[in-house]
Each structure stands twice: as structure tokens, then as C-alpha cells.
Design a protein around this nucleic acid. Sequence first.
DNA 1: TTGACATATTACTGATTAGTTATATCGTTA
DNA 2: TAACGATATAACTAATCAGTAATATGTCAA
Lengths: 114, 114
Amino acid sequence: MSVKKKSNKKLSEPQLQRASMLFATLSEPSRLRLLQALQEGSLSVGELVEVTGLSQANVSKHLTVLHGARLVKKSRAGVFVNYELADSVVDQLCGLVCAKMERDLAEEARALNG
Amino acid sequence: MSVKKKSNKKLSEPQLQRASMLFATLSEPSRLRLLQALQEGSLSVGELVEVTGLSQANVSKHLTVLHGARLVKKSRAGVFVNYELADSVVDQLCGLVCAKMERDLAEEARALNG
DNA sequence: TTGACATATTACTGATTAGTTATATCGTTA
DNA sequence: TAACGATATAACTAATCAGTAATATGTCAA
């Protein structure tokens, strides 16, 4: 009994605060869309506007948030500012979340069929 | 050039919506506190109130959200309702987030020292 | 049934924030 | 310098939501 899995990380209160902020950063569909777009590689603000269909001001604001969370890096190229993914954690988190969504769907299907 | 990492998952729009909802669920410090408390094992609502210091109504509401996201399971034991973690994804996500926070701290320290 | 206790729900309030519009800033070229 | 195009910021609005207080629901015991 009481078989423990591996990690079981205990987070301190400040760690917990920071963690919640990172999750909040990822809780906006528009920001996830931007991160998805950047998985192809580096893109300028204008290109991100085109790809996502969001307004320029909106994209810029979201990029500021993502940059503040150190999830993207920016670099000027003349008049343009290019953004790219700064941390592989986005990929990893999305992988875990996708796996969970599939588990949930399977369970829902099972619940329906009985 | 163009060395690709592994996954690079592309999420569909509905997947993206669901993912953002899961992240939103985890973006509240109080809910993370509850999940942390449940890492010890199954706890009743009253015990969670004691451990976290949150109000009874507040804990109950957060547990409803966590249950809706299938992150916790509930089971009645007489007058009590016991909650326990329902998905290891919480542990895994927290692990990734903690690792990133440590990377960020290291980078900030490096930035300060020059 | 009634009373006592554990949990859930409702109605409300204050705070946060995504998106928009308008404007400001920055870099380049003429 | 001035004019332009790309990006960032400011002010605002509407919607969302955590927390609280009060109440409802549910379970057991007498």
C-alpha cells in the first residue's frame, strides 16, 4: 500500500506563484496560436499577424507577455522584429496536455458506451 | 541547418481551446495548492480547508473546477467527500515548470553578473 | 421526523485582462 | 531633415473570475 510514483515535487509558495503565472500565460488560445506558429521557426510580427489573423496591436501585446515569460526571444532585423521560441518547455507541455486530452476523450467514449 | 527537435506537435483549433482551458485551470495558485496537498494522498474537503487555509466555499468551488477538468477524483465516505489526484499529468507539468523556473533563475543570475 | 455536521451552490463584488482604436516610437530611405 | 512602414504602447470597454456570505443539499444518528 501507499505505492508512491516518482517525483512528487513539493513547490514552495513563491515557486507556486511563478508556476501559476506561467500557466496563466499559456491559458490564452491566442498566445498558444502564436507559439504554434513559431514552431515552424522565426517569424516577424507582421508575419504572425498574417498567420494568426489577430490584429497587430493584439499580437504585439501577446508577444510582450510571452517575452516577459521568457517563452520567446526577439531580435531586430532592420525594421522588422523577429520572434522565435525560447524554451522547449512549450513543446513539452503541449505534448503532455495533448496526451491528457486523448486520455480524457477515451474515457468519455468509454463512459458513453458503458 | 534547420535541425528539428522531436515532437513539434501541431494542435488543431479545438485541441488548442481545450489545452488553454487546462492551463487556465492550473493558473490559480489556490488550485495548485490544493493539488499539492493531494500529492500526499486522499483528503476530505474539510482536511483541504485546514491544510490550505482557504474558506470552505472556496475550496469546494475550486474542487469542482479541478474535478471538471478531470484532475481530481471524488468519492463519498459517509458524510465526507474524499478527493484524490486523478491524473499524473499534474505532477509531470509541475516538474517541467519547475525545471523551466530554475533555468530562468540561472539565466537571470547570469544576466546580473554579466 | 429532527438535529447536527459536511459539502455544494447561489448571488454578489472587486480585480484582472483580452481585444480595439488611436497614437507613439523606432529604423530606414530619400 | 522629412516621410514611410513596422512595431509598441496607452486608454478604454466588456467579459471573466476568485473570494465571500448566506443558503441549500445531503448524510447520519437519535
